[in-house]
Design a protein around this nucleic acid. Structure first.
Length: 740
DNA sequence: AACTACGAGATTTTT
DNA sequence: TCTCGTAGTT
């Protein structure tokens, strides 16, 4: 067996991870240690050694992208497309199981999967009787609580008073119960339900459980550190067979666990040996991606976390020596963008392809300054993330039309489009429809038919609604005769939806029409409309072209699993990274997760990593003076070049001469959170003492607006009544105290 | 029913 | 600063 070609060129640890097929196995795979290769080879090895048939192996990933990649690589090793595999995301696999056994939880096999929009609208309706003050208790917070409950496998009955929250005046549990019963009425599931219902079935139907336990002789799990409780329960149910050790292999890295905020439990991976007695652990520590310097810096940083399973990345390449990790300090976010772009330009001129650069930010708002600068300098770039194809309003509208076409009982879809384009349906008309539907215990669509019959609407809206209804009748007939591509095209045309965008004068309307065209084109890739809708419900990503020559700008979260020759890591400042809000909410544990995020960021780089921090940052409206991130101090000196930092500390002195009257003034330092201000890097007391204060009544000078009087001062900005320019709110740091 | 004005709030994200 | 959602107006 060991001489088979699929096992060539593997290191001893990788080989052990692949050949230990029996019993529970945890593979601790550090960044860049060939994790995906191990997973796919292990899969192939199980098949090629006749241990199981392709459909007897359950392979679970976290994202569709990972599932797709694995499917492709397995096919390559096997030399043929692998059909009939149980390989997919937790949610896709659960959807497949749930369609088979839906009746056990009161659904039909044709149940609908809701997206976030639908969930919100449904919750809004459900919450109505409670008269919740949404200013105080925003609904997305409530939805978050419900989702976290579902992540933990809690049904409404399972929530003890102790689990209950103050949120929504303590009604959260009751609202959750009402939300769940509404879902059942609609024959619908949200994402959490896919897992929750299947676990419920496996728990209550021993026959079903046994069927799957028998079927899956081997289980492979990717990114185990990202699993939540319900996913863990699902795995444990499937993996436990009486008297036999479970052949479950979980691959993950506790140091890369960055999703606790959406329910992931690092404890799952930390507890593995207890959950699966007799478990073996294999550590993959040889990194084939990065230079020794990058690995050293990353290792030094992550060593500051406690409660790790423990693992040290070692350089696995022969050419592992490289540059030091650079740390650069700049004045503000604009300077930061300039600095990064000029470094990219230099390397680009020396022949480094743009596709090998990434700018990895902590939060979305940071991308703006980079985008501006990249446009200015003419460097091709792409912002990864943002709103995705299927999240655009026009796409969701079109999908709602399709949903209503094949399922007239889809009330959520009906509500979304009944007045789009405008058909004179406001709250009153909608109320009428709801009342009618309740009365005849039927869908909104049926209610519409009934009300049209009995002349329940008047004037223009009656006419338009009749057309709307007629349109669906027509296109359903067309769907039978001509197929879904033609029918959907006709539906969007005849309903006036496309016309609505053609008449729209806003600059983004043409783009939206293009998107709709693209959507209709994509329909042809699927046999039926139902298949298409199932696909987009579960696979929200439109596979982007990764290969083109552009700088990637994305969040650190988005970068997980990717690698680049050169990586820029801006915004390493207290409050930004680690994020103030995270620290406030989660304390030390949250700081550890932020540190893991930093670790993920650094380990994305193959050859060059540059970390930046700015002395001043504008967050929304106000400027804040910012302190270098604590993570910078945690990088071991031997792997880091801090020359760029001292250089800019000098620059900062120069700047502070220029802006002296205000940069260190109370107005600015007062804006820092007390936590940050006193913790480290204390404010230069001497300078602060010598600097005149910007306070109400002070006469000041501004470069652009001239002389004026301060009439209000808070945080980093001041309200100034200028003599010539009128009253304006300006940044305190741009003000100088005018002479007496 | 459709339009306009004000105020609050604002990470990270997959399915 | 910008965007969204609610309240008030036409």
């Amino acid at each position: 067996m060991t001489t088979s070609s699929h096992l060539d060129r593997l290191n001893p640890e990788q080989l052990a991870a692949i050949e230990t097929t029996e019993g529970p196995l945890l593979v601790l795979a550090g960044a860049g240690t060939g994790k995906t290769r191990v997973l796919t080879t292990r899969f192939a090895h199980i098949l090629l050694s006749y241990r199981a048939k392709p459909w007897q192996v359950l392979t679970v990933t976290f994202t569709n992208k990972a599932a797709r990649e694995m499917r492709e690589r397995i096919a390559r090793i096997l030399g043929e497309p692998a059909e009939g595999l149980w390989l997919g995301t937790f949610h896709a696999l659960c959807a497949r199981m749930l369609r088979r056994h839906a009746e056990y939880v009161g659904l039909t096999s044709g149940f609908l999967i809701l997206d976030t929009d639908d969930q919100m609208r449904l919750l809004k309706q459900v919450v109505e009787p409670w008269r919740i003050d949404v200013k105080r208790w925003p609904l997305n917070g409530l939805l978050g609580i419900i989702q976290r409950w579902k992540d933990r496998g809690l049904t409404p009955d399972g929530i003890t008073p102790a689990e209950s929250t103050d949120y929504a005046d303590g009604h959260a549990r009751a609202i959750y119960a009402a939300y769940q019963s509404r879902l059942r009425e609609l024959d619908a599931c949200d994402f959490g339900d896919l897992m929750l219902h299947v676990v419920e079935i496996l728990r209550t139907r021993p026959d079903v459980l046994e069927q799957y336990q028998r079927l899956f002789r081997y289980i492979l799990v990717d990114e185990y550190q990202d699993t939540n409780t319900i996913q863990y329960l699902w795995l444990r149910l499937l993996a436990r067979r009486e008297g036999e050790p479970a052949n479950i292999c979980c691959v993950g890295d506790d140091d890369q666990s960055i999703y606790s905020w959406r329910g992931a439990e690092v404890e799952n991976i930390l507890r593995f040996e207890k959950d699966f007695p007799g478990a073996k652990i294999v550590r993959l520590e040889r990194n084939y991606r990065s230079t020794a310097q990058i690995l050293g810096a990353a290792a030094g940083l992550i060593a500051h976390n406690e409660g790790r399973l423990g693992k040290t990345l070692r350089p696995g390449r022969d050419d592992a020596q490289g540059e030091l990790v650079h740390v650069v300090g700049v004045w503000d976010s604009d300077a930061e963008a300039r600095e990064v772009c000029s470094r990219i330009e230099n390397l680009w001129r020396n022949g480094h392809p743009l596709g090998e650069f990434a700018i990895l930010v902590r939060a979305g708002f940071q991308t703006r300054s980079f985008e501006e600068r990249l446009v200015q300098t003419g460097i091709p770039y792409r912002i990864v993330g943002g709103l995705r194809f299927y999240e655009r309003a026009e796409i969701r509208d079109a999908i709602a039309y399709m949903r209503l076409l094949i399922n007239p009982a889809d009330d959520l879809a009906f509500e979304r489009i009944v007045n789009l384009p405008k058909r004179g349906v406001g709250p009153a008309a909608l109320q009428k429809l709801h009342a009618q539907a309740r009365g005849q215990k039927a869908s909104l669509y049926m209610a519409l038919e009934a009300l049209l019959e009995t002349k329940g609407f008047k004037g223009k809206s009656a006419e338009k609604l009749a057309d709307f209804q007629d349109c669906f009748v027509q296109q359903r007939a067309l769907l039978e005769k001509e197929g879904h591509v033609v029918a959907v095209g006709a539906l969007l045309e005849e309903s006036g939806y496309l016309e609505m965008w053609r008449e729209d004068k806003s600059p983004d309307a043409p783009g939206r029409l293009d998107n709709l065209k693209e959507l209709i084109r994509a329909l042809a890739d699927f046999g039926t409309l139902g298949e298409f809708l199932e696909h987009i419900a579960l696979v929200m990503d439109a596979e982007g072209t990764n290969e083109d020559e552009r700088v990637s700008v994305m969040t650190l979260h988005g970068a997980k699993g990717l690698e680049f020759d050169t990586v820029y890591l801006p915004g390493w400042e207290e409050g930004v990274f680690p994020s103030q809000r995270t620290v406030d909410e989660g304390g030390d544990k949250a700081v550890e997760e932020e540190r893991r995020l930093a670790y993920v960021g650094i380990t994305r780089a193959r050859y060059r990593a540059t970390i930046l921090h700015a002395a001043n940052r504008r967050i929304y409206a106000n400027w804040q003076e910012s302190m270098p991130s604590r993570f910078l101090d945690e990088l071991p000196d031997e792997y880091v070049d801090r020359a760029g930092e001292t250089a800019t500390r000098q620059a900062r002195q120069d700047y502070s001469g220029f802006f002296r009257p205000s940069v260190f003034s109370d107005a600015v330092t007062g804006s820092m959170s007390p936590l940050v201000a006193k913790k480290r890097h204390p404010v230069n007391e001497e300078l602060a003492a010598n600097v005149p204060k910007i306070e109400v009544g002070t006469r000041v000078f501004h470069q652009k607006f001239g002389y004026g009087m301060v009439i209000g001062a808070d945080r980093g900005s001041a309200e100034v009544a200028f003599e010539k320019a009128g009253t304006k709110r300006v940044m305190a740091s741009y003000l100088q105290v005018a002479g007496e």
